[in-house]
Simulated scan of single mutants.
Amino acid sequence: MNDISGRPLAVITGASSGIGRELALECARHGYDLLIAADRPLDETAAACRAEGAQVQTLNADLATPQGVDALHAALGGRDVDALLANAGHGLGHAFLDQDFNAVRHVIDTNITGTLDLIQRVGKSMRERNAGKILITGSIAGLMPGTFQAVYNGTKAFIDSFAYALRNELKDTNVSVTVLMPGPTDTEFFKRAELTDTQVGQGSKQSPESVARTGYEAMEEGEAGVVAGWKNKLQAALTHVTPDAVLAERHRQMAEPGKA
């Protein structure tokens, strides 16, 4: 048991809003206690999860930094993690050569470096116990060249690939790894990434509730990966038979600033 409640423990990153908030709620509704983390206020998420009967610990930290990951690992206090939902991440719009490289670095360190650091620390303990579930939020963006989102799509290509590789490394254990690959979702992502004046920013989107439910169910079933939404499943399938140059041009049409 992780604490006096006797409930399993789930760690959810990027839980202040959007998909992360809904993943936290899914875990709370299904009997987990929570440690939730984000670089933004978590009060609303925590209150909603406590209303579902969960004990909730919060941590405000920038998981793009080693100090942030250290703080999250320390907050565990040696408790076993039954489910790690590595959801922290953000985007960055506009042309790569026009971007502030500090912002570029922060996207890479959030989406890749901090995520892998946390997964390695928690995953080692899971492997030692021969038990645990890991859900990693990737994206269908990782399946195509991201013109005007080149860094973000590149990081998600890395994460999508990494998740399948880690899963295979752990195939002889009782630790499962699942990658959730959403498409455009109705969250603060597009505002934070400065993509509100693009076709994708103003187009139709899935609800974060439906995306989180899809990801949570896939994690619990131990699936390798899941694309949320039938339109996104179709788009993902088409990327396998469409030349990268064509995909890059299509992405330009979706993500070029001022083209909404």
Rank of each mutant, 00 (worst) to 15 (best):
L84M: 05
Y32M: 11
D43Q: 13
Q99Y: 10
D43E: 15
A75I: 01
L92H: 06
D80P: 11
R105W: 04
E52S: 10
L92R: 09
D33H: 01
V107I: 05
H30A: 07
L97Q: 10
C49I: 09
A83D: 09
N87I: 00
G91S: 07
G77I: 06
E26Y: 07
T58E: 14
D70S: 07
L84N: 04
G77H: 11
L25Y: 13
C27E: 06
R105M: 08
A74T: 09
P66W: 05
A74C: 07
A95N: 12
G89V: 01
D43R: 06
F96M: 12
L63F: 08
A47W: 04
T65C: 08
C27I: 07
P41K: 03
G78E: 02
A64I: 03
D80F: 11
R40M: 15
Q99S: 11
D98F: 15
G77Q: 05
V69R: 01
A71D: 10
I36A: 02
N102D: 14
I108Y: 03
D82V: 00
L23V: 10
A74H: 14
A38V: 01
H30Y: 14
H94Q: 13
D33N: 02
L72F: 10
R50N: 09
I36P: 00
L59T: 00
V104M: 12
A28S: 10
L23W: 05
T65E: 04
H30I: 00
